[in-house]
Design a protein around this nucleic acid. Structure first.
Lengths: 152, 152
DNA sequence: TTTGATGTAACTATTGACATTACAACAAAG
DNA sequence: CTTTGTTGTAATGTCAATAGTTACATCAAA
């Protein structure tokens, strides 16, 4: 089971906001065109990011503002805003294991700690990357493109 | 998006095989009863574990054998056998970002490395736990149950 | 008041998870 | 060699989530 594309779409949105700030008016239509999807999906994701307090969206006139310094928003913040995990658990269990079976009634006690550690390892790694890294990365890539063109 | 319960069901199966070996004949019906699901789901998971070479299943007569030492089968081995990840990637992207947009045509170069690192962090943690840990853990839990009963 | 944008609701298509029934294939015991 | 119990697997149904699309009310600024 893969993690839904809405997470990478959200990162794409942030990157566009950083790159095109001032240059273009960043609307949901504009973003939908870059990501190659439809504006409604973008607006739903923007609504989630707004609910998490990561951005503000100007109604009527359009325009997206990031509320914190880029280095203060990690991949995990974005992931948490976007992915609705039931009870915050990454791993699903089967509904109701048999309490009459010694294994069935102990399976949660047996696995919960280990699964939580695995989930934590992933989330900790997510905290290491921030929007500032994205900003830096995309500018390096665009510079490289520029130089490539000059070389021809 | 959560990881499907088939992974924890597989760990449940292994635990049952270890605990009830010799004591009961471990059939898909028996397992389905402990996990509280239906035998066909169990058989499909057994088929995946068999395809990965982790177990053998005796047709006709029934019975499951684990092919390696418990300490030689990690959670990751089970996860890999069970979860069909497209191209091995945990994170999904949107289908076809716009190549005319500077961000759209660079989004993979920008994100791929970081996402792979996050996935790797999770998988490395998964490698730390083995079926031997499960065996040890369940026996400790069952001993504790025993003592709790004696106490009353 | 017009214009252009966001916020949402409603509907659809597609996919995956999981449950369930049914039956063929098979191995061992009698 | 027939019975019995089990695995292997196809077919079908239900349910939830993803994602696309249309439509329109709401809103802010020119």
């Amino acid at each position: 089971m893969q993690i839904s594309s809405r997470f990478t779409v959200a990162l794409h949105i942030f990157t566009c906001v950083e790159v095109f700030r001032g240059e273009y008016k960043i609307t949901s239509d504009f973003l939908a065109s870059s990501i190659h999807t439809n504006p409604v999906l973008i607006r739903k994701i923007l609504a989630q990011l707004k609910a998490a307090g990561l951005i503000t969206v100007a109604r009527g006139t359009g325009g997206i503002e990031i509320t914190r310094a880029l280095s203060e928003i990690s991949f995990y913040d974005v992931y948490e805003a976007i992915e609705p995990l039931e009870d915050g658990d990454l791993f699903r269990f089967h509904d109701a294991p048999n309490p009459d079976c010694p294994v069935g009634r102990n399976i949660h006690a047996l696995l919960d700690g280990k699964l939580a550690a695995i989930q934590r390892a992933m989330e900790e790694e997510m905290r290491k990357y921030t929007l500032a890294d994205l900003d830096e990365g995309i500018r390096a890539l665009l510079d490289a493109e520029q130089k490539g063109e000059e070389g021809t």
